[in-house]
Design a protein around this nucleic acid. Sequence first.
DNA 1: GTCTATAGTAGGATAGAC
DNA 2: GTCTATCCTACTATAGAC
Lengths: 198, 198
Amino acid sequence: MATRAKYHHGDLRTALVDAALELIAEHGLEALSVAEAARRTGVSAAAPYRHFPTRGDLLRAAAIRAAELLVTDLRAAVARATCPGEQLAETARAYVRFVIEHHAGLDLIFDARLRVGDQALAEAGRAVMNVLLPVAMDITGDAHAALDLLEKYTAAAHGYAALHLSGFLRGRAPEVETIADRAAEISAALTRAAGHSG
Amino acid sequence: MATRAKYHHGDLRTALVDAALELIAEHGLEALSVAEAARRTGVSAAAPYRHFPTRGDLLRAAAIRAAELLVTDLRAAVARATCPGEQLAETARAYVRFVIEHHAGLDLIFDARLRVGDQALAEAGRAVMNVLLPVAMDITGDAHAALDLLEKYTAAAHGYAALHLSGFLRGRAPEVETIADRAAEISAALTRAAGHSG
DNA sequence: GTCTATAGTAGGATAGAC
DNA sequence: GTCTATCCTACTATAGAC
């Protein structure tokens, strides 16, 4: 939405990925069309195919870019807090904001259909988890328990974001920050539970 | 998938809704096409439009049917358990199974785009919540806390189901029942948390 | 109530010019 | 590397016959 100055002068590929993320943010994964991405970057419908053989390849590239953006947001969230519990809560907030803003999150990054034979996407996904794992480990002390905590906490945060996007929570919690806080509360509850049984 | 005997002999409408749910179950909301639903019920592409003016109307009908099916499942889950905590856990399991089986849940039933001006869908959604609310009330004793618990617990269950569908959890928890158990665990953790602070 | 036929739209993808 | 032109496919929706 910001600077779209001298695109398609050497960096159409990046411009297309940006447009793809925009389209996904507006109407979800399925709404991504190569033609529309081309339109938005000011090139012909055929131009993208020089950079992405199929629609799936553009989608994959968008997923990788999303992973990179998410890593940035999560790292910032970790840095904002001091104790592990707060760090986890902050990443929960960050994740909720990310999913609501981009209309996609771990579901896109770890999409089973996209991952088939794509090493770069698998690597990007791993990078995301590598931000969260140490935080969870600091809380549980145990690797198995950390994965368990991570799984539950991502599920909760993702569910909150997904239900907000659909409209289910609009009545009770219309604001993004409210949703983010709720996810952080679950994170806190899970952190406490891990402290007892871990 | 079962009995498709003498359809389109008086009940094409129902057959189309069944087909619509099948399509959604297979490839998600966006994959629902009137043409394909017609094909599956053995009628021409034009036939559905006698029963549903637009694709959106078929989708709405499918959402209402989904709500009815979910109510049935949730009621059965409540009946399976005795104490409120177990009841909530059982409904969490039931919800996860439902979403994974139908590729849709509260997100479809409460979809903001579908609800515009549809009283029947709003009513169907309310019916779902009316199954869960008493259970939550039994746990918290307080209406506000009950809604809070309900919100958190549905978010967690929905997130688990959604992440499983996308493929994110396939590595660690490939089985539906494993996912259902995990959601039940969160439900239990939230029930305990509600007991402390509610 | 269902059919055939059809109009209109939109997207994925390729061929060949520049 | 991008363009124009084109093909093919699939879907929504309508008109009019039966």
